[in-house]
Design a protein around this nucleic acid. Structure first.
Lengths: 165, 165
DNA sequence: ACGAATATGTTATACTATAACCATTGGTGT
DNA sequence: ACACCAATGGTTATAGTATAACATATTCGT
């Protein structure tokens, strides 16, 4: 079981954070780009949970860490960097950002988003990617990026809501 | 060829608008909900092109029609109604809205979005829907809605950019 | 050390969306 | 017709998200 499928399960989340930060460091070195302290701190804060985090929530967290009081452009620039390096994804419907568990191999942004608990799990389905690619191709469309946001109830919340009924 | 696949082709766009308004009227009657003049006007403006339209662009257009000067809440309420009735979709990545060519049968929001010309085409692929449903099911996730936003170049813009190169 | 490029700080502002409250309209039952 | 209630739209203010423009500081190669 890799980190990509953990969001909706019990797990030691420190491993997620450590893995994410470690591979971010490695990837940035390989790519010759700079994962500065600010960028790393932002990435770490985004990884504090499996819930997508808004830019302003991030600003509040940075302020709470007491180390720095940053203005919106600063955090947005860090977010832009992390997006470019595919270390995070943006969830359009939520205006929020979430860590990418597989930053090493490029892939699309496909997420399951729980309406109830807010957690997000990235999915990696070749069938999904291929079917999208095929449908686009049939329309003569040259794909550069894809974003899939599937809303509903995660296993836990679904079970809970069934019990309530 | 139905209206759902026209966005990237030459066509008489008046037909799109007429069809959309006509089926909106019919559907709202069937559902016992009121497609008021404001709501209808907003829907018509959204259908003026195949490009997703922002709420404030819509406000400007309403002002330009000289008939009314509306404030944001007014247009957002109209948009909410149209979204509820599935007469339009929201494109999360663009904070914009676009008409739904198939409001009569419920379906997910799956779009091809051209980075160059801004036009959007809704796709209806059972293979895509099914693969998504299956992937979500495998994760124990109960889907309530899906939004797929595929970015890239439409046939026209792709041809044009190849020619430029 | 120097200059160029990159990164961050700072101020102001643009863009997107909603809360709260009030006035009006339209259908319902009597 | 009338009173009533729910739904719609108008208005003001404000919340939430994102970027422009410019100043300062840091890093890297030479």
């Amino acid at each position: 079981m890799d980190n990509a499928s953990l969001a909706f399960r019990r797990h030691n989340h420190k491993h997620c954070v450590n893995d994410a930060l470690h591979s971010a460091v490695t990837l940035c070195e390989e790519r010759g780009v700079r994962l500065t302290p600010l960028r790393k701190q932002v990435l770490e804060l985004i990884w504090q949970s499996h819930k997508p985090l808004g830019a302003y929530a991030l600003i509040d967290l940075l302020a709470a860490e007491a180390t720095r009081q940053v203005a919106p452009p600063t955090v947005y620039r860090a977010l832009d960097f992390l997006l470019e390096q595919k270390l995070i994804h943006r969830i359009g419907a939520l205006n929020a950002f979430i860590g990418c568990p597989h930053p090493d191999h490029s892939h699309a942004s496909h997420f399951l988003l729980c309406d109830e608990c807010g957690r997000a799990e990235e999915i990696h389905s070749k069938a999904v990617s291929d079917s999208i690619q095929k449908a686009a191709g049939a329309a003569g469309f040259a794909v550069t990026s894809q974003s899939l946001e599937v809303f509903g109830l995660c296993p836990d919340c679904h079970k809970r809501s069934s019990a309530d009924a």
